[in-house]
Write a protein that binds this DNA or RNA. Structure first.
Lengths: 231, 231
DNA sequence: GTCTATAGCCGGATAGAC
DNA sequence: GTCTATCCGGCTATAGAC
C-alpha cells in the first residue's frame, strides 16, 4: 500500500464525517438546513483544529473561532451550545474515524503478520492525512473534566485492544512468539503516536511516512517473530 | 539497579533544585532571603505541577496557585514576574535534572550495551520519581509561544542525541547492528515518554517500573543486537 | 440563520497599607 | 515580605434587530 493511494481513498471520509455528525444529532441541533450545516461544520472543524494546534483549546477563544471561520459570534452558537460541545463533537468524529479505517483496512486479511502490518501502516498513514486531528485528540484530552474524557479513553483502549487481538491471532498460528501482549500493544501505540506528536522532528530529518511505517513494522516484528535465522 | 535505591539517591536532587534556581537568578529576583526563597519556590513548584496535572497550565489561575500555596496574590509576584516565568523556571529546572541524571548515571560505563541499559533505566526511573514534572515538561510545551519553547526543544534533542551517541559507540564496537540510528533514538524516546504520558494505563494493569524498563530494553536490544542465536 | 451589541464574569497584574 | 483591594482587559454566552 502506497501512501498516495491511501490518501485519495481516505479523504472522502474526512469530508463526510461532518455530514454524519449532523445526521446523528439532527434533532438536538438548532440548524436544520442540511447542506448549510455540513458546510459550516466542516469549516468549523478545520478552523478549530488549526487554532488548537497553534495555541491549544483552552487558549483558543470563541472570538478567534469567529474571526477565522467568518461566522459571527452569535451565529456560532447556532452550531453548538458552548465551547465544551466542540471538543465533544471532535472526539466523537475522531473515534469513529480511526475505528472505521482500522477495521475496514484489515478486514479479510487472514495472515496475522500481514494484518499487523496493514493495521500499523493504516494508522500511521491516517495520522498523516489528518495530523491536526490526531494531535488534538491526544493533547486535548488530558486536562478535560472527567465526563469529557470518556470517548478518548475508550478509543485509546479500543485501539490497543485491536492490536493485542492481532498479536493473539499470530501467537495462536505460531507466527508470533512473545509473552507480554499488553506491553507490546502499548509499545505499538506509543510508536504510532510519535509520528503525529513529533511530526516536526521527522520532517526536520526528512523521514517520510512510508519510511517510518516500515521502521515501526520492522522493530515490532523483530521482537515478536520467532528467531529462526542465523547470521 | 533497583528502583528504590535510585529513588533515595535522586530525591536529594529534587529538593536542591529550587536552591539552584535561586542561586542562578539571585540578582534578578525580588526576594533576597535565601532560606525563605528556597522554601517557597519548593512549595510553588509542587503546587504548580499538581494543578497543571489536574487542569493544565492555561486553565490554572494565579488565584488557584495562591489558594493552594497559602501565599497571597500579591506575595506571589514577589517570586516571579508573571505566569509565563513560572513555566520558564520549571523548564529550566527540568532540563538540568534530566541531563544531570543521565550523564551521572552512565559516566564511566564502557560497555555500550550496559550503558544503553543504564540510560534507559535511569530515564524511566527518574520519570517515576517525578512523574508530574515530566508530564508537565511534555504537555506544557506544545502550545507555548516560540521563544518559550527553546528549552524543551533543546532538551528533547539533547536526550535523543544522548541515546544516538550510545548507539554509535555500540556499532563501532560491533555490539550493535543497525542502519538508522536517528529512528531508533526517536523510538527509544517515544517508549520512555509513554511511561509518564500513560501512567494510568500501566497502573491499571499492574505493570511496575522495573518491568517496564526491562521491556523497553529488551525490545530495543532485540532490534539492534546482531542476530547470532538459533532457535 | 446571521448579525451587532452587551451583560456578566473571571483572571492577570499592580498599589499601597502593614 | 506579605497582605487586601482594585483596575482593567478579555472571555463566554445571550438578546434582539434584521
Amino acid at each position: 500500500m502506497k501512501f498516495n493511494d491511501f490518501k485519495t481513498e481516505a479523504l472522502v471520509t474526512v469530508e463526510n464525517s461532518c455530514r454524519q455528525l449532523f445526521m446523528t444529532n439532527r434533532t438536538r441541533f438548532k440548524i436544520k438546513n442540511e447542506e448549510l450545516a455540513v458546510k459550516n461544520y466542516e469549516i468549523l472543524t478545520n478552523v478549530t483544529l488549526k487554532l488548537c494546534k497553534e495555541k491549544g483549546f483552552q487558549a483558543m477563544s470563541i472570538r478567534d473561532l469567529s474571526k477565522e471561520s467568518g461566522l459571527s459570534l452569535g451565529a456560532l452558537y447556532y452550531y453548538f451550545s458552548g465551547k465544551d460541545e466542540i471538543v465533544h463533537f471532535l472526539h466523537e468524529q475522531g473515534h469513529r474515524f480511526i475505528q472505521d479505517i482500522l477495521t475496514k483496512k484489515t478486514a479479510g486479511i487472514k495472515n496475522p503478520a500481514l494484518k499487523l502490518e496493514m493495521a500499523i501502516r493504516s494508522h500511521i498513514f491516517l495520522s498523516e492525512v489528518a495530523p491536526d486531528w490526531f494531535f488534538f485528540f491526544f493533547m486535548e484530552t488530558k486536562n478535560l473534566a472527567n465526563d469529557m474524557r470518556t470517548i478518548p479513553v475508550l478509543s485509546e483502549i479500543w485501539v490497543e485492544q485491536f492490536f493485542i487481538d492481532i498479536l493473539a491471532e499470530g501467537k495462536k498460528a505460531n507466527v508470533f512468539s512473545y509473552d507480554n501482549s499488553s506491553l507490546i500493544g502499548a509499545a505499538i501505540k506509543s510508536l504510532l503516536q510519535d509520528w503525529y506528536l513529533k511530526r516536526w522532528r521527522y520532517m526536520q530529518r526528512g523521514i517520510t511516512v512510508e519510511q517510518y511505517a516500515d521502521f515501526v513494522i520492522s522493530i515490532i516484528e523483530s521482537y515478536i517473530k520467532p528467531v529462526k535465522k542465523k547470521k
